[in-house]
Write a protein that binds this DNA or RNA. Structure first.
Lengths: 152, 152
DNA sequence: TCGACTATGAGAATGATTATCAGTGAGGAG
DNA sequence: CTCCTCACTGATAATCATTCTCATAGTCGA
């Protein structure tokens, strides 16, 4: 497995963006990567309590830094919860996230072919530097099975 | 122009979703439709002050209702601003929004061809009822011109 | 028109996020 | 080796969008 590789790459990206690599930032990134699903800053802070008392201020700042460096991504489709920002760890190259509406599990989805769509939108609108912000939502097989089983 | 048509359709959708049509909801929907760009609940509330004193509670509730009925859409790409929900008016059928990073102007973009991508994601992941949440960001021609002109 | 049911809105409460600022540590210059 | 600089950290306090409460008022179906 490429556990080490993930973290090394993430830290490299931090450096590339002019941010220092500190033990706290490493721990936050690890906790984010090891999270089961999209996780909020406060949940991360709580998850880190046992090992080290990392201030929530640091968690918020680190998440913003990681997002800036492309290592973390803030999920948009948080319909269920209130106004709460949730993040997921992003390892490789361009991809998107498929979130289960019920259990909030997250799957990375690659090969969306949106690059050509970006170009097409540029052509049609005259906008420059068009990028996109895309999440998928759905029901994962496990939750779908439970739902159909409960159906009276 | 189909000003009347827009509003009538919007109110019909509210009714179809089991929500009553009230003067306040009509005014909120109109203000949302007439807004220059993505607008927050508080800005809407302020914009409505002169004519009628509509409580901000009503504005929040109405926006949620309109979003539920498909008449309003909550923009995801609010990178610039803080944790603030912004909405745009949605008239017709399925489309997406292209937001200028600089002036926040919004353009509706149709024909994204994402329906087939949804099906493809379902096939590949086993998830059911896959939908998507997509915004485009870029720089509009006017802002691009200003930026290049300012470049020293 | 009538009645049941839903919407409204002022005020207070909630709670996630951000600002402040003194203390800490790493790294370079002398 | 020592001093200096500068970014990072984190406890506390402040901010501010959003939600709750509940008495009043309005809407829709019959």
């Amino acid at each position: 497995m490429d556990d080490r590789r993930d973290m090394a790459l993430a830290m490299d990206r931090l450096l590339a963006h002019g941010h220092a690599v500190t033990p706290q930032r490493r721990l936050v990134a690890q906790a984010l990567r090891d999270a089961a699903g999209p996780i909020s800053a406060q949940e991360l802070s709580a998850a880190l309590e046992p090992g080290r008392g990392i201030g929530q201020m640091t968690v918020y700042r680190t998440l913003a830094l990681l997002a800036d460096a492309g290592v973390a991504y803030q999920i948009a489709a948080t319909d269920a919860d209130r106004h709460l920002a949730r993040y997921v760890f992003c390892s490789g190259s361009h991809h998107h996230h498929l979130v289960c509406q019920t259990c909030h599990a997250v799957l990375e989805v690659g090969g969306c072919g949106m690059e050509s769509v970006d170009r097409d939108v540029e052509q049609r609108t005259g906008f420059a530097g068009v990028g996109h912000h895309l999440d998928f939502v759905g029901t994962c097989p496990a939750c779908a099975a439970v739902a159909s089983g409960e159906g009276h």
